[in-house]
């Protein structure tokens, strides 16, 4: 299965196995937490020098999604760049690549906590994007409805006949959907983390990404 269909505020959305969200009615493609330039930021901060290929890999996968779906609008839900300097530190090739992807469609960068300053990169920069009945923002706000957000990098962790499986996942309930991170160098936060207990309703569903999309109910938290 390439996607699982989910419903939010009456709208039909496809949670894709790639980790992107597709809104067919608006031909809108939404990805979250690209963290472009992450290896550059870590090197700059005096950390280790990770393989500098994550921008190329992330853009390659994003390009494939755009080629498949031909969206009218692309929304990047924040933390698109690992920090402001990472956006400015992007190579000329990568800038040209992004500009090529943007051509002929609307492109919205939602501001995340990592990238408040995105001057110099094409596209519209917004704090949040209301498209009734849905709202796109970086971090989920408790009590909101029809909300599409990212930030937390949720991942599903489960044991299948003794085999440990961990996959980035969408979390979905009647009020919101939280997207997995689309960036290559991104870890995840377990779906069992207490933060999701306060944000998500008890009957939340996860859509696991990977070779195929699988919808699995989020396990009810044990009394711990």
């Amino acid at each position: 299965m390439q996607h699982c269909t989910i419903s939010l505020s009456g709208e039909t959305l496809f949670a894709r196995a790639t980790g992107a969200l597709w809104w067919p009615a608006k031909r809108l493609l939404c990805v979250s937490d690209l963290h472009l330039g992450k290896s550059e930021r870590i090197a700059r901060r005096g950390g280790t020098m990770l393989p500098p290929y994550e921008t190329r890999d992330t853009l390659t996968r994003l390009e494939a999604e755009i080629a498949t779906l031909d969206p009218a609008c692309v929304v990047s839900l924040g933390d698109s760049f690992d920090d402001g300097a990472a956006a400015h530190g992007l190579g000329a090739d990568d800038r040209a690549w992004i500009a090529r992807l943007q051509r002929g469609r609307r492109w919205v960068w939602i501001e995340g906590n990592h990238d408040p300053d995105l001057t110099g990169i094409g596209g519209v920069h917004l704090h949040s994007l209301p498209l009734p009945p849905l709202t796109f923002r970086h971090i989920a706000v408790p009590g909101e409805a029809g909300e599409v957000s990212g930030h937390y990098h949720p991942k599903a962790v489960l044991s299948l006949r003794g085999k440990h499986v961990s996959r980035p996942c969408f979390l979905h309930d009647s009020n919101r959907v939280i997207l997995p991170a689309f960036g290559t160098f991104t870890g995840g936060l377990s779906w069992a983390d207490p933060v999701f207990r306060t944000l998500m309703r008890a009957e939340a569903t996860a859509v696991l990404t990977g070779p195929m999309a699988h919808a699995i109910p989020v396990p009810r938290t044990r009394s711990a």
């Binding site: 990770l50 393989p51 290929y53 961990s166 983390d193």
Partner: peptide
């Protein structure tokens, strides 16, 4: 460390794909 850390498998896959002779 939460979502800040990511698996070394990702690094392996990335190198295998883009820089196999590293």
């Amino acid at each position: 460390g939460r979502q800040a850390t990511f698996s070394s498998d990702i690094l392996y896959d990335t190198l295998h794909k883009y820089d196999p002779d590293h």
